[in-house]
Amino acid sequence: MSESNRDLLNLTYPFRETLKPGAPLFRNVRNHIIASNEIALRAAKKQAEAGGFFAEIIEAGMQGEAREVGRRLAERLKETVRIRPRPFCLLAGGETTVTLRGDGQGGRNQELVLGAVETLRGMQDILLLSIATDGEDGPTDAAGALATGESAQRAESLGMAAADYLSRNDAYSFFAKLDDLIKPGPSGTNVNDLVFLFAF
């Protein structure tokens, strides 16, 4: 038996020292990334292009308070509509956070979209959707939600105001009443979240 293999057999957990790169234990270890948010974004971009959209990844590693990210992305969509011919699809990926202020139901993707509703108000032929790639957004059966330029007005016709639901972290109830939740079921894979901003 080689000396390095003998050394490996003598190792006990916990190791006396943190293993360093190049340690014999790692000699036959290979790491391959087979799924990531970046890979998912590139695949989504390719699919959008195949569907006839100009597609651009505008943000990878998306972070921050979900409602604020939603507003910011909706503003980006507004700006892009003014300067780019349609149809197009902007994509963002990462994982936001939610600061709980109320006792509502939802997840970070639903709250991101709810945060965008007022900014999108009145825009024509647009769609913003945000989904958890594992198919489960927060403690709900939805992966996320979608909003259009008509979402705020549709909600008001049902006696709902986006700001009220946002103040209670109750995005699930808001989008359930609009029938705008996305419910594909569990995917078995989690590579964070994807946001799509379409102009048709």
Results as ranks from 00 to 15, higher is better:
31 N>E: 03
43 A>M: 14
13 Y>E: 14
76 R>I: 07
80 T>S: 11
136 E>P: 02
37 N>T: 07
178 L>N: 06
179 D>L: 00
125 D>K: 14
120 L>Q: 05
130 S>P: 10
55 A>H: 01
126 I>D: 04
31 N>V: 04
171 A>H: 09
95 E>I: 00
194 L>C: 05
162 A>Y: 14
178 L>Y: 12
120 L>V: 11
124 Q>K: 15
113 V>Q: 01
98 V>M: 01
123 M>W: 13
144 G>M: 04
136 E>M: 03
78 K>W: 13
117 V>A: 02
120 L>S: 06
8 L>E: 06
106 G>C: 04
11 L>V: 13
163 A>I: 12
194 L>R: 01
27 R>C: 03
195 V>K: 00
115 G>H: 02
110 Q>M: 04
194 L>Q: 02
150 E>M: 12
30 R>N: 00
33 I>Q: 03
155 A>W: 11
68 E>M: 01
114 L>K: 05
167 S>P: 09
114 L>P: 06
49 E>W: 13
83 I>M: 12
75 E>I: 06
39 I>F: 11
62 M>T: 14
60 A>G: 10
31 N>C: 02
25 L>N: 00
108 R>S: 13
58 I>W: 15
19 L>M: 12
130 S>M: 03
200 F>K: 00
65 E>W: 03
28 N>E: 00
100 L>H: 08
122 G>V: 08
54 F>K: 10
4 S>P: 12
60 A>F: 13
136 E>N: 06
50 A>P: 04
76 R>H: 13
151 S>L: 13
124 Q>E: 06
54 F>V: 06
38 E>S: 06
1 M>L: 04
162 A>I: 09
126 I>Q: 08
134 D>F: 14
62 M>A: 15
44 A>T: 08
143 A>L: 09
180 D>F: 09
47 Q>S: 11
79 E>I: 03
92 A>F: 02
45 K>S: 09
200 F>E: 00
113 V>C: 03
